[in-house]
Simulated assay, not measured.
Amino acid sequence: MTFPRRFLPPLPWLSAFEAVARLGSVTEAAAELDLSQGAVSRQVQKLEDRLGQRLFTRDRQRLILTPAGATYAKELRGALATIASATLSLSSNPHGGLLNLAILPAFGTYWLAPRLPRFMAAHPGVTVNLATRTHPFDFAREDFHAAIHFGQRDWPGAGFLKLMEEENMAVAAPALLAGRKVEAPSDVAPLPRLQIESRKGAWRRWFMAHGLGTEDRIAVQFDQFATMIEAAKQGLGAALVPRFLVEADLASGVLQALPQSEAGRFGAYYLVWPEAGADYPPLVSLRDWLAEEIAPG
């Protein structure tokens, strides 16, 4: 967004006014800014002339902020602090910055976190701030530079990088299967089933994919994959989970894949970002790094 130059007074005028407003004294403001008292007074006068507003009332040697001046000083102080912070950040960290990233809990724990040290090593100037969000949100209302999103490419006003399809599989603990004959998908029907809240109907689709019809009977429903996987390990029921979340448990034998366990794909994981912030350097670094991480070979 651009503004006519008449709405952007010179920075020295603004600095002089803010200092006088904060200190209540032209003398003290001049000392702080390393200027003469006359120079500070002239800059404040020029600002008032530009604004067409009296910012101070003069009572002999005292300057008292007008109501308009007090409001302007408060808003201006925040803007000057932002400029100072940005300048300090650039000076001390020219190749980095803060990256606020919203993540899905399971994806962040099992897929992103193990890879993140490689990103940090390649981009030591970037500070990553991770926060959990389980549902899409409005970038205009949340202070995030990007988010990890599951589903379809349906986030309004956002750019996308597809990370991976979610390949689901049916698993259960050996304790649950002990003494049971589970050799075909039809043998899974009597097992208690666990379900994740965001994948309602997954078991029904799994049985239908194997030519079976069964009641969509769920023993327990969860809102987090991590909790459901732990329940499955304890033998509470069979679970449909993304393969990447249970690869280690399958390798160790803590969980077993059920017959013809592949459950298909319900969506994909995407890195999404507001289009207006697509060129933010830390985001560009993350986006390029993720593109390399998911590249074939």
Rank of each mutant, 00 (worst) to 15 (best):
Leu55Val: 10
Leu236Ser: 12
Ala140Gln: 13
Met228Ala: 15
Ala170Ser: 10
Lys46Asn: 12
Leu47Tyr: 08
Arg133Asp: 08
Glu183Lys: 11
Val128Lys: 02
Gln234Glu: 14
Tyr110Lys: 09
Gly52Cys: 13
Gly69Gln: 04
Gln224Leu: 15
Asp279Leu: 13
Arg265His: 09
Leu236Arg: 15
Pro10Gly: 07
Leu98Met: 12
Ala84Ile: 12
Ala172Met: 10
Arg180Gly: 02
Ala158Asn: 00
Ala238Ser: 00
Glu183Asn: 13
Thr27Cys: 06
Ser261Asp: 13
Pro259Ile: 01
Arg118Phe: 13
Pro10Gln: 11
Gly78Thr: 09
Ala29Arg: 04
Ala81Cys: 14
Arg205Glu: 09
Ala106Thr: 05
Leu258Phe: 04
Leu240Val: 10
Ala68Trp: 14
Ala232Asn: 06
Leu176Arg: 02
Trp203Leu: 02
Trp13Cys: 05
Ala248His: 07
Arg153Ser: 14
Gln61Gly: 12
Leu176Trp: 01
Leu212Arg: 00
Ile103Pro: 02
Gln45Arg: 14
Leu290Arg: 05
Val272Trp: 01
Glu166Ala: 10
Thr87Ala: 07
Asn100Glu: 11
Gly201Glu: 01
Ala19His: 01
Phe137Cys: 07
Leu76Trp: 01
Glu142Asp: 14
Gly69Ile: 02
Leu98Asn: 09
Leu99Phe: 04
Tyr110Glu: 12
Phe150Pro: 01
Ser186Glu: 10
Val241Arg: 02
Ala79Gly: 10
Glu247Met: 08
Ala122Pro: 08
Ala263Pro: 01
Arg287Gln: 11
Leu51His: 00
Pro117Tyr: 07
Gly267Cys: 08
Pro4Met: 05
Arg265Asp: 05
Glu166Cys: 08
Gly52Gln: 07
Pro117Val: 08
Ala178Glu: 15
Asp143His: 15
Leu33Glu: 09
Glu247Cys: 04
Pro174Ala: 09
Pro192Trp: 00
Pro156Trp: 09
Ala121Tyr: 04
Ser89Lys: 12
Asp249Leu: 12
Arg204Val: 00
Val272Cys: 00
Met208Thr: 13
Arg42Ile: 11
Leu51Pro: 05
Ser89Glu: 15
Gly201Val: 05
Asp138Lys: 12
Phe17Asn: 03
Asn168Glu: 11
Phe207Glu: 00
Gly159Lys: 02
Phe119Leu: 10
Gly264Asn: 03
Ala173Met: 02
Pro242Tyr: 01
Pro259Val: 05
Leu65Lys: 06
Arg193Ala: 07
Ser36Trp: 11
Val254Leu: 07
Thr109Glu: 15
Gly24Leu: 03
Gln45Cys: 12
Phe139Ala: 00
Leu80Gly: 03
